[in-house]
Amino acid sequence: MSARAEAPRRHRHSAGVQLILDFLNRLPPYRWTQSRLVRWGITGRTAVTAIPYLWLLLFFLVPFIIVLKIAFSEARIGMPPYAPLLTWIDGSVAQVNLQLKNFANMFQDSLYAKAYLNSIKVAAVSTLFCLLIGYPMAYAIARAESKWRHILLMLVILPFWTSFLLRVYAWIGILKNNGLINNFLMWTGLIDEPIVMLQTDFAIYVGIVYSYLPFMILPLYSNLEKMDLTLLEAAADLGARPFKTFMTITLPLSLPGIIAGSMLVFIPAVGEFVIPELLGPSDSLMIGKVLWQVFFTKRDWPAASAVAIALLLLLVIPIVLLQRAQAAEARGAHR
């Protein structure tokens, strides 16, 4: 037996970095850049870790710090419309101005708590529907013949190549009183009066589930596709009927995928603004809309920033869950 070539040492990244790396490695420009860097000797862990790290730094940490800074300020008429963090007294002594009232306000006014809770509820229900719809789809794609799989995956990803906003607008055309659905139903004679679907909570759910479904399908597919099919045969051999096999083997093993997909839907859905604004009723109470109103109608940038920071802190728990699910998945793959 010929000697095996020395396999490159695999480096374990933190789950967040791994997620970004997985995405970046799918982009030809990234891979090209990486191959160039490797040629110039910037290789291995340094370059690989540095790129996503810098990206995170530039596009997350810096903006976050800016928003945090504004959250501790107070609104005033001026450019920009909030008080500065540092003021110079007599040109030599710096005074730090921190305001906590923006955060305090959020506790005093019940509007915020209600908006957060409602947003979480809407996001949770949407996530559930995404799971119920997305799981069978992911399962079907994972079990399809390999020549069909790529086409099916493309179909799932293709809508991302069009503008998110346009796709939500399209739903207006589909759901409105003289839109596609109602016109079709009335043409077939099934209904006499149009069914009111637009500007309802139903429309919000339709919008969110539709827009975020690929985020549920892709991690689930990734997990199900890697599943060892002989496990299912073994279960059948040991006497488990197909449904039992699904519940005791497939479902538990796909749990990391379920969690990852759910978090990828839930986390952005909580802060959704566009979909409730375009498709939902005027009285839909979501934190994204509240934030918009505080920023634009009330013209209070600091208060709005505080709402944004609070929203982020609220989502820390699901984000941690997502990280752990990703790590579990990575561990499983390395076994």
Binding site: D228, E233, D237, R241
Partner: peptide
Amino acid sequence: PYERPVNMMFQSYALFPHMTVEQNVAFG
């Protein structure tokens, strides 16, 4: 297969990774 009085030992063993040894054996 689940109705045959036959059991199989797979080449890759096909042990259920999320179950303990006990649970694996008890599955059938």
